[in-house]
């Protein structure tokens, strides 16, 4: 499959999607306060272009920072659970319970707890919603390491750190990136959740909210498309990192 093919096929699919959308709105003769059509989006983007850039940046950096904390905390938790049975038994039910709590209910709690610290509470939600898959996959990757993998180095007198760095860590990378692909989307959802539920004048979530208040439906749809675009960009950045660091795990 050529590079242009890889790029052109999804592009054609997207254009097809927009055409179908436009057609459905046109056939039903929906006014744009019921359902905006793609042709309404261009003017909306242009009218609010400065805000899209500014708020898009807010959403982007807070998502990335939240995800970064997720990676650090998730990997550490995963290491603790993956390398010690006792801590796995202790932490696992706690994590599962925590993950089961709908994050929409945590948002007002965090917003109240850290009132005024808008960036911090947004980053915190992005982190809280996304660290679970990373912690679980790293712990599973480490705890399911076949004993022979440890033994080939242990039999030579290698230290635990050496075994971790040379064997356990690289062997867990495919699982880690699998989880990171889920986590990046979750972190993005977390950021927007905070921006929409507790509006504090920043981010694409806020722009969506003002579209709602002003009954500017094309703007609301334009925000959704902008969010989808950012989501795609973030996801494929993770895919590119996966290719670089765990490309060996791919079988063609």
């Amino acid at each position: 499959m050529s590079a242009s093919h890889k790029f052109l096929v999804p592009l054609a699919a997207m254009i097809g999607f927009l055409l179908v959308w436009e057609w459905i709105v046109w056939v039903n003769d929906w006014p744009n306060y019921k359902m905006a059509s793609p042709s309404d989006l261009g003017p909306a983007f242009w009218k609010f272009r400065i805000l899209f850039l500014e708020y898009g940046w807010d959403t982007l950096w807070r998502t990335v920072v939240g995800l970064g904390i997720s990676v650090i905390v998730g990997v550490l938790l995963g290491m603790v659970m993956g390398l010690s049975r006792t801590s796995r038994d202790a932490l696992y039910p706690l994590l599962v319970g925590f993950n089961a709590i709908p994050k929409a209910t945590v948002v007002p709690v965090i917003a109240l707890l850290l009132v005024g610290l808008d960036d911090l509470n947004t980053v915190l939600i992005a982190f809280l919603i996304s660290f679970f898959p990373i912690a679980v996959s790293v712990s599973i990757g480490l705890s399911t390491l076949e004993p022979e993998y440890r033994d080939i180095l242990r039999a030579l007198g290698a230290s635990k750190t050496t075994i971790f760095l040379k064997i356990a860590l690289p062997k867990t990378l495919p699982e880690f990136f699998g989880a990171l692909k889920i986590a990046v989307t979750l972190a993005f959802i977390g950021t927007n959740l905070m921006e929409i539920v507790e509006p504090h004048g920043k981010g694409l979530g806020h722009l969506f909210d003002s579209g709602k208040i002003n009954a500017d439906y094309p703007l609301m749809f334009a925000v959704l498309i902008a969010l989808a675009f950012l989501g795609i960009v973030l996801y494929y950045i993770v895919v590119a990192l996966e290719q670089i660091f765990a490309g060996w795990a791919e079988r063609d």
Binding site: E146, E148, Y149, D151, A155, L156, G157, K171, A246, W248
Partner: peptide, 19 residues
């Protein structure tokens, strides 16, 4: 009394480091 560098081991599982 502990592992030593003068031993070489191979198992049924070839234990390839795929990376």
């Amino acid at each position: 009394t502990s592992p030593r560098a003068t031993v070489g081991m191979a198992f049924q599982n070839p234990v390839m480091l795929e990376w």
